[in-house]
Simulated scan of single mutants.
Amino acid sequence: MTSDHPSAGAGVIEPPGLKRRDDWIAVAEDAIPFERIEAFFAGRAYEPHRHDTYAIGQTLSGVQSFRYRGAERTSLPGATMVLHPDELHDGQAGSEHGFRYRMIYIEPAAIQSVLGGRPLPFIKGGVTSDPRLFAAVHALLPATDARIETLEFEDGLFELAHALEGAAGGPSRATAAIDYRAAERARLYLHDLPHGTVTLESLEAISGRDRWSLSRDFRRLFGTSPYRYLVQRRLEAAKVGLRRGVPPAQAALESGFADQAHMSRHFKKAFGVTPGRWLRMAAMPLGREQA
């Protein structure tokens, strides 16, 4: 590793006013609907947390370490990380030089648009050297100032979904019938951030599937529970508001949380950092400091 920060030739916009050893996150501004980042961390990066998306990425330099499914994992340049939805993990530098990486967070629903109801592929251990998967992920992770066109992403998503299945050992066989259409109706309803209390009973009425079968199908198809899916959509809405400079308390209420503390608690559980730290690393406007 020759530099703690990406070079200008890498096309990454470094946050202004940061020292070379500061942790940072650069967020891509794309037409695609999923967040992708490049980041550098010198030490501890994230506390234990979980996403309801796939977290798929590649280490560019240094040693990236994380605890995942009960064991310590290591990612080096040349490998691909695939963290399954709803799996607890943390993150830290595995050497004194820190690590730099790129990551994209892809909703299981996007993978399902290709797989059409087959169970989500699972990559054992979270790190793989599969060459087809490496190429598919690499194509979706250019520098953060390089825009990905919509059709380019859709082509890449098709390749990624099939590469994931291949790296996981091929299409899985379901042990019980899955009602993909019913689960998708429930997902679309939750995705639109409905107001008021949401229950499995209400999802049963919307989907036409009994609540417990729906809950099981939802997990197998989208990698998380209906409730955690809804919370994550609220968090994504809150992040948009915070990045635009909306005060945290207002962003929390507008995205469906009871208050700012409620949002902050879920934010750290989902992303491993507080809203305030995330905004500082991303060099985004902050309405006011938060815990």
Rank of each mutant, 00 (worst) to 15 (best):
D4H: 07
D4L: 15
P6L: 07
S7C: 08
S7F: 07
G9D: 15
G11P: 02
V12C: 04
D23Y: 07
V27S: 05
V27Q: 08
E29P: 00
R36H: 00
F40W: 15
Y46W: 12
H49F: 02
T53H: 09
L60R: 06
S65G: 01
R73T: 09
P77M: 03
A79S: 12
T80V: 15
D86S: 15
D86P: 04
G91L: 01
Q92G: 15
F122K: 11
I123T: 14
P131Y: 11
L133P: 05
F134W: 01
A143D: 02
T144S: 01
A146W: 04
L151S: 14
D155T: 14
G156E: 03
L157P: 03
H162M: 10
L164R: 00
L164S: 00
G169S: 06
R173D: 14
A177C: 09
Y180P: 00
L190Y: 01
H191K: 14
P194K: 01
G196N: 13
G196E: 11
T197E: 14
S202G: 07
S202K: 07
L203M: 13
G208F: 11
D210P: 15
L221G: 01
S225E: 14
G245L: 03
P248D: 07
S255G: 04
D259L: 09
D259A: 14
K269C: 07
T274P: 09
L279F: 12
M281D: 03
P285M: 06
P285N: 05
E289R: 12
A291P: 10
